[in-house]
């Protein structure tokens, strides 16, 4: 539907949508054309299973794993972080907000914070040993790899010896920051180079745009 501002200014729905996209671009590292190109991606994802203009968890799962079914700890966390309003669906605005963090030019602090929230499964404000254990165990199961409990404990011990500097058995936000700055490869997944040339990846936005960057 049209927003109040556009109704009161008697703008057409098309112009209204352009105004909303322009507003979203203002508050993100994306240009208006890039937001429009991402809207093409959003439209495609949000109608893949339920055609309602919102991304449901199954649709995100389908896009990431080529199959909409099955429990996945990581997908649950990613979806939860995208879904700011916690209403079980991802709206376009939420999609842009979350993808902004993955932009190559997004501030590193935002990437560090987002990654922390991904790993803080129970949202306690700390990354705890059990959470790390749970994530490693989930990957082992997912990839059908076998690792002895002894080796798994050793890996987690070593990781905590390095990351948990006050030795209280959990990693705080501050400890996490120091740790990832020492191991920047851990933030590799937090940057999507595709976002730098999203207009080339989704050229169909050109048919809908009224704006030239």
């Amino acid at each position: 539907g049209q927003c109040f501002d556009c109704r009161s200014r008697r703008r057409s729905p098309q112009t209204c949508q352009q105004a909303n996209l322009a507003l979203l671009a203002l508050d993100s590292p994306f240009s208006v054309n890039e937001v429009e190109a991402l809207y093409e991606l959003f439209k495609k994802l949000s109608c893949s299973i339920i055609d309602d203009g919102l991304i449901h968890k199954e649709e995100l799962q389908l896009a990431l794993f080529q199959a909409p079914y099955g429990e996945n700890l990581f997908l649950d966390r990613v979806f939860d972080l995208f879904d700011e309003k916690k209403n079980g669906v991802i709206e376009f605005e939420e999609f842009i907000h979350a993808l902004s963090v993955f932009h190559p030019y997004a501030p590193i602090d935002e990437k560090i914070h987002f990654a922390f929230r991904l790993y803080d499964l129970r949202q306690t404000g700390f990354i705890e040993r059990e959470e790390v254990h749970q994530m490693v165990a989930a990957i082992l199961m997912e990839s059908e790899m076998i690792l002895s409990d002894e080796l798994l404990t050793m890996i987690i011990d070593k990781t905590f010896a390095d990351a948990d500097s006050d030795k209280d058995g959990k990693i705080s936000k501050e400890e996490w920051k120091v740790y990832v700055l020492k191991h920047p490869t851990l933030l590799k997944n937090m940057t999507l180079p595709y976002l730098k040339d999203v207009t080339t990846a989704f050229p169909s936005f050109v048919f809908n745009t009224e704006v030239e960057d």
Partner: peptide, 25 residues
């Protein structure tokens, strides 16, 4: 190879790799 739990998680979990959103276009 993986002596760091987070390195293992970030490089092995497909759910944390959003690049496939763009590859599936």
């Amino acid at each position: 190879k993986f002596f760091n739990a987070f390195e293992f998680i970030s490089s092995m979990s497909s759910g944390f790799d959003l690049s496939s959103l763009f590859e599936s276009k």
